[in-house]
Structure formats: structure tokens, C-alpha cells
Nucleic acid binder design. Structure first.
Length: 306
RNA sequence: GGGCAGUUACCAGAGUGGCCAAAUGGGGCUGACUGUAACUCAGCUGUCUUUCGACUUCGGUGGUUCGAAUCCAUCACUGCCCA
């Protein structure tokens, strides 16, 4: 069996994966590569639950990558992630250290582990405005007219169909090259947390983040000129708090709806991880409440024995 | 004490004699996803059954009727108004 090239730690939000990954990294003299589609943004700290203090173990900062690499409001996507991941990964390898991929964005994790072949397709505003008012049926026809589909994403909504057309169109016109990253052999560890405890933690964490100034964080982003729509697109915290800031949602409704949305998000994350297992990834689940030292020695043993 | 309104599945809430296991929304569960993924979308959600279907439900009880969530009586509870 081929030796592991890295360790992946995954789990739903509020499962404690970051603090575990940091302790593990500290113990293995490893570095962490984040797999979180929202923590890439600077100034989006409380709402994305960055908890940068988690990376400090016994006074040492565990090196981490792909956090705070973009300004809020900028665009990011799987392609960029795949690229950035490999840049960080090869640096870490060059230093002779172990890389720990840790995060909750299932698609980003799968993209790098599986070696998705992607193309850097920028947003095509002209194309989008042209497709804006078309029905899903029309869009499906347009997409079909491009011939071979370049992906297998469910094209079940106009939004997804438009992006698929954008990609098909770009592929044709520019004749661009796809990324060519190899799949990676990773030990995958999942943090297993019972649903009721996960839900309880999510609720508690939401309330403490509100106390920590989550509303101010959003206010500040708005004050800097970031458009409400962009913030709303970021989802969850940024969506509901922005709606509240814009006067479209009362405080209590915001808290209530946001809490529900985060629970639903955590469920979707689990659906993705189970899907990965169905697609052939072996995930080693460890209980969320197993003592850290025990988890570290277990993971270390798995990692070394491949 | 008197008057009126109400009591429907986890919640909200339609339904006012047969087409009702009961609209719709929310929640919950399961799932899809190689492209903005903290997105977006789909299915299920009384019980048993893979399906067909069978069975038990619409506050309790007792009636009317071929047939009742729907009509009548009565009891209980809730809300509002008058005392």
C-alpha cells in the first residue's frame, strides 16, 4: 500500500476539528492547510469561526495556510482553491514536514484528494446578463448545444445551469488547459459527534458569537463598501446578519433563522462526507469526546503504519 | 357567573357531510452536487407494507347519517369581551 501523503481532518461545523488538527500538527511538527471556503477572507473572523487562537499550542503557533488570503468581497472558487492548496502543499513537502488538510468544505477536500480536473473559468458578466431571464429548460438546451458536458454537476437550477454554460463556453472559446493534479493518498480522519450534541454546540456558539460582536463585524464590512448582496452570498452568518443590518429582518427572527440555517448546513456537510465514503474514500471516525492525546496517538499510529 | 371564538399531524395553519391520511408553509430526516458549494436543488415526513394496499387519526364522550375532521348534544381545556 502506498504511503500516505498527508492527513485530512474533516467534520461538521462545531465538531472541534480545528483544535484537534492544531494539536495533532503540534505533535507531528506538521502544518495545516485549511479547507474552508469562507475562512479565506480577511476580516470575516467571528462569522466564519476562525478561532485563530486554536493554532497556538503551548505558546507556539502552528503554521496554517489558506486562511486570510483574500479581501472580503473578492471571488474565490474550487479552481483557485485547488491551485492554492497545491502551492501550500508543495512548500510544506519541501520543508520535509507533514501537511494536515483540515476543514468542512467537502467539495474543496474532495477536489484536492481526488484531483479534479478543472479549468480557471472567470465570471462572464456579458454571458450572464444574456442568460439571466431564461428558463431552466432553455438553459438546458443551450448547455446541450455546447456538446459534451464538461462536468457532472446536477444542472437542476438556473443558477447551476448558467455556471455550467459559462464553463462550457469558456472551454470552447479559449481552448484552455485543465489543471492536472494527481489524486492524493490521504489518511482521512472524521470527527464523529452525535447529532444532538452537535446541535447544542451550534446553538451555544451562535450566541457567544453574537456577544463577541458578530453584528459589528458585518457592519464594518458594509461600511467599507462591500455590497450587501456579496455578503448575503457568503451565506449563514453573513447572510442573516446583513439582512438584519439592512432592516429586512428583526433581531429575533435573524437569530432564529440563522440558528436553523447553521443546523441545516451541518447536516449537508455530513451528507457530503457520507457521500465521499460511498464514492470510495475511507474515513476513520473518531469520537469528538475522546481525549486529545488518545486521538493523536491513534491517528499517528494509522499514519505511520499506512 | 354571562357572551363570543376556538381545540386538526412536531409547529403554524387550510379543510366545514363522500373526491381526506387530511392543502400549504416551517421544522425534521434522507439524498444530489467535478465548478460561485456556508451555494443550489430533490425526495420523504400517522402506523404496517418494497409496491398495490390495509389500518388508526382531526380535544373527550355520545348521537344523527349509507357515510362525519366536517352536523347535533354534552364534557374538558384555551383565548377575547361583559360582570
Amino acid at each position: 500500500m502506498k504511503p500516505y501523503e498527508l492527513i485530512t481532518i474533516l467534520g461538521p461545523t462545531a465538531s472541534g476539528k480545528t483544535s484537534f488538527a492544531a494539536r495533532l500538527a503540534h505533535s507531528l511538527n506538521a502544518e495545516i492547510i485549511s479547507a474552508d471556503s469562507r475562512q479565506v477572507y480577511r476580516q470575516m473572523d467571528i462569522g466564519t469561526g476562525k478561532d485563530l487562537s486554536d493554532y497556538e499550542i503551548n505558546g507556539n503557533i502552528v503554521p496554517y495556510h489558506l486562511i486570510d488570503i483574500l479581501d472580503a468581497g473578492e471571488k474565490y472558487n474550487v479552481f483557485a482553491y485547488q491551485h492554492d492548496f497545491h502551492q501550500a502543499f508543495s512548500q510544506i513537502c519541501r520543508r520535509g514536514r507533514t501537511a494536515i488538510l483540515c476543514g468542512g468544505t467537502g467539495m474543496y477536500i474532495e477536489a484536492v484528494l481526488k484531483g479534479y480536473r478543472l479549468l480557471d473559468v472567470p465570471e462572464n458578466k456579458e454571458l450572464r446578463s444574456r442568460l439571466e431571464n431564461k428558463s431552466l429548460q432553455e438553459l438546458t438546451q443551450i448547455l446541450a448545444s455546447y456538446g459534451a458536458l464538461h462536468n457532472t454537476t446536477d444542472v437542476d437550477t438556473a443558477q447551476r445551469a448558467i455556471r455550467a454554460i459559462e464553463i462550457a463556453d469558456y472551454t470552447q472559446v479559449k481552448n484552455a488547459h485543465k489543471t492536472d493534479f494527481e489524486p492524493l493518498n490521504s489518511l482521512i480522519v472524521g470527527i464523529d459527534i452525535p447529532r444532538d450534541i452537535r446541535r447544542k454546540r451550534i446553538s451555544e456558539r451562535l450566541h457567544s458569537r453574537l456577544k463577541e460582536g458578530m453584528l459589528d463585524e458585518v457592519q464594518q464590512l458594509l461600511a467599507q463598501g462591500i455590497s450587501p448582496d456579496d455578503l448575503i452570498y457568503y451565506g449563514l452568518e453573513y447572510k442573516f446578519v446583513t439582512l438584519h443590518a439592512m432592516g429586512q429582518l428583526g433581531y429575533n427572527d435573524m437569530v432564529q433563522q440563522l440558528e436553523i440555517a447553521i443546523h441545516q448546513f451541518a447536516k449537508r456537510q455530513m451528507t457530503w462526507f457520507r457521500g465521499m465514503e460511498r464514492r470510495g474514500f475511507r474515513i476513520h471516525w473518531l469520537p469528538y469526546d475522546m481525549p486529545a492525546e488518545q486521538r493523536i496517538s491513534q491517528v499517528t499510529a494509522w499514519y505511520n503504519h499506512t
